[in-house]
């Protein structure tokens, strides 16, 4: 009985790691770039790694490091971070609804590990909730991504600008490609999902020049999701 339990947990951990690899691969170059930028804007190695460890939000960290370099006030940086990360409230609401039946001691740390990327992968693997010990799957997924982000930042701070710019720029497409790679199989299975994504893209495209990038993504996600209320059929999701 006990060995069977261990086997089940082990296979969840393995699956979580496999699901986390594309995120880890995508995070590495971005974390490296962040480390390099943060170092250039005058942060110490401890500070830039600490930011990854405690803040763990890519776009905000780029912005934060940049603003620190420019000498912007703490209050402004913190408010801008708040605005940029409000979208995680909606993502967390959606994800926690998915794992509603888990106990608080799992829900809480899993919610802490949410990023755009872990949220996307965890949502695509929503069937995993039904597996026994599925929380180990989500936990490993989050931890793999987190470690890649923190270690990548540290590496970026150490290496400085040894990495050729062409390569790091090319690697910047990695996360976009991953998002596409997650989305397409769902659309293939159920074409109507495309309507949701396209509405979200258009809303973001139209609104982000006016209200800023962070709010544009928030608006696109909310309104695209509302389109889903109309196009999705109950029995297909």
């Amino acid at each position: 009985m006990d060995t069977e339990r261990k086997q089940l947990i082990k296979s969840q951990i393995r699956d979580g790691m496999i699901a986390g690899v594309p995120i880890a691969v995508g995070y590495l170059p971005i974390a490296l770039a962040y480390g390099v930028l943060a170092k250039q804007s005058g942060m110490t190695l401890a500070e830039l790694t600490g930011m990854s460890l405690f803040v763990y939000a890519g776009a905000s960290q780029f912005m934060g490091a940049n603003m620190i370099g420019l000498g912007v006030s703490a209050a402004e940086i913190i408010v801008a971070t708040f605005v940029l990360n409000l979208r995680h409230f909606i993502m967390s609401l959606s994800f926690i609804n998915q794992i509603k039946r888990y106990r608080m001691r799992w829900k809480f740390p899993l919610a802490l590990g949410l990023t755009d990327e872990t949220f996307s992968v965890a949502s695509i693997f929503h069937k995993q909730v039904d597996n026994k010990y599925g929380y180990y799957f989500y936990g490993t997924l989050m931890l793999t991504s987190y470690l890649s982000w923190v270690l990548g930042s540290l590496l970026g701070g150490v290496l400085g600008d040894i990495i050729p710019a062409v390569l790091s720029q090319s690697m910047g497409v990695a996360l976009y490609a991953m998002f596409i790679g997650l989305l397409i199989p769902s659309i293939k299975k159920y074409h109507r999902i495309a309507v949701i994504s396209i509405v979200a893209m258009l809303v973001n495209y139209i609104l982000s020049p006016v209200i800023g990038q962070g709010w544009g993504i928030v608006a696109g996600t909310i309104i695209g999701g509302l389109a889903g209320v109309f196009v999705l059929e109950e029995e297909r999701i």
Partner: peptide, 29 residues
């Protein structure tokens, strides 16, 4: 959550994926 809101929450990932990809992907270079 009322039924429509559950549907909304289930649609959120696909909406987020769309909004995260475009137009951001045009800023790679």
């Amino acid at each position: 959550f009322p039924k429509w809101m559950n549907k909304w929450l289930q649609a959120i990932p696909y909406a987020a994926l769309g909004a995260l990809v475009f137009p951001g992907i045009m800023t790679v270079v």
